[in-house]
Each structure stands twice: as C-alpha cells, then as structure tokens.
Simulated assay, not measured.
Amino acid sequence: MRPLSFLGQDVVVAQGPIPPHPLPLFPEEAACIVRAIPKRRREFAAGRWYARRALAQLGVPAAPLLPGPDRAPRWPAGVVGSIAHSDTICIAAVAWRERVQALGVDAEPWQPLDAELWPLIGTPCELGWLMRQPPRLRGYLARALFSAKEATYKCQYPLTGAPLDFPDLEVALDPPGGRFTVTFRRSPDAGFPAGASLCGALLVHAGHIVTGLVLRPGAVPPPTTS
C-alpha cells in the first residue's frame, strides 16, 4: 500500500490493512477492549499500531494510547492526531500541536452510498448539486460528502466538544483538485462561527475515499458574507 502524504508536510500519516488477528497492544490497551467483539478488537488494535508507527516518525516513544471518555485516543503531550478505519484498512495521522491545532481523517469504501441515505447527510444545496452530476457518479460523490463531513467532525470535536449533525456542515467537493471546502452552517463554538469555511483534502486510495482536514493555529476564518 503506497504511503499517504496528502495532508501536508507537517502531518505524518501511517496506514495499512487490518489483519485477521489483532495486532499487538500494551496490556493497558488490551484491558480496554476485553469485552469487545473480535471485529472491534481488530480495529482498535490496528488503530493503535498505525498510530504508534506515525508517532515514531515524530520521535515519540511507544506508549499506551488509551481512550478518553468520548472513546477518542488520548494523544501524547504536544501531539494531535486522528484515526480512521473501514472493515479492511486503517489510517492514523499525527502532528505536533505547535504546528497543527487539530486534524481529522476518515476512510470509507469507495462504493456508491445508497440513495435513501442522501437526504440524511446532504443539505438542499448539496442534494441539488448531486442531482446535476452524471447519474453513475452520484452515489460515489454522496459517499465523498459523507466522508468529508466525518473528517470535519473529527477535526472540530476535540476543540469544541460539539456533537454536530450532518446538516450543520455544507461541503463543496473538488475531486479533480483533490480538495473540498466545508462551511459551518451552525456554530459549534465561538471559534467556528456560522459561515466559516475550511479547506480539506481528498483522494481515492486502496479502494477507499480518504478525506482529511488540518486546522493550523489561528487558521479559523471569519464567517463568509454574501
């Protein structure tokens, strides 16, 4: 699996397949999933494995990555990170907090999203845009919209603690450019005013749509004006 570097030079990304048996864990980590089903154990272990590979590239020694109350990993001091997985692959991204305020990644199988789900994730503007696309592409683009919103949620949540819904975000995709723009329709926090827009990255990789959003210090923009 070729390496990923789509989030910029300040972000280290490690990724690979989720094997049929759990990868090694620290005892403290294993204790967190002792009652989990096998699938969850494999995903949890892969997330920690690839996160440690990414952290090693920052020079951070291997140590347990325990979940917090919200189940997200508690990263080492001075580090921000995000983990994403599907049933078959796992991606971990990390960076120094002095360079990156927050980040979020997501990975979804590159398969059409069922049409009955589109109204649940899309705003009227997004749904109108989807219907103007070639019919054979609409399900794939809906999947990309879903993934971009997931990455955005994971980026903003450590800063705001806000449980945003899909309609709270509006995404404009630019697949040829490998980019997307996300606009906050509802403010989760004073740092993300309604109307503020951020730019993320996307690519198709290993049979998946992979999206990521990197927030650099002081990069939250003011709301856009019409």
Score class of each variant (00 low, 15 high):
A77M: 11
D189F: 12
A148G: 01
A31Q: 13
D165F: 08
Y50F: 15
T160L: 10
R185H: 10
G104W: 02
W49M: 09
V80C: 02
L145M: 08
E98R: 15
A144E: 02
P124Y: 14
P19F: 08
P20L: 13
R71G: 05
R52Q: 15
G195P: 01
G218S: 08
L55S: 07
G207D: 03
P221K: 11
I37Q: 15
L159S: 05
A92L: 06
G78Q: 06
D106C: 05
L169G: 01
L23R: 08
A148K: 00
L23W: 06
P158C: 07
G47H: 05
W75H: 06
P167T: 08
L120Y: 13
V94Y: 00
L66K: 13
V94E: 00
S86C: 10
P223Y: 14
P134R: 12
P167W: 06
T183P: 02
P64K: 10
P134G: 08
F6D: 03
P119R: 11
L66T: 10
P22L: 07
Q156H: 12
E150G: 00
I209Y: 04
A63Q: 15
A54Q: 10
G122H: 01
F44T: 06
G195Q: 06
V12K: 02
T88Q: 09
A36V: 14
A84E: 03
P158R: 12
V220L: 13
G47I: 04
R138V: 04
T211I: 02
G139T: 03
G128K: 14
P22W: 05
L203N: 11
P22S: 11
A172V: 13
G47D: 08
G59K: 09
I83D: 01
L164G: 11
D70L: 10
A102D: 06
T123H: 01
P167K: 07
I121A: 01
R99M: 04
T211K: 00
M1I: 12
C32I: 09
E28V: 07
R42N: 04
G178Y: 04
G161N: 13
T181I: 07
Y140V: 10
P61T: 13
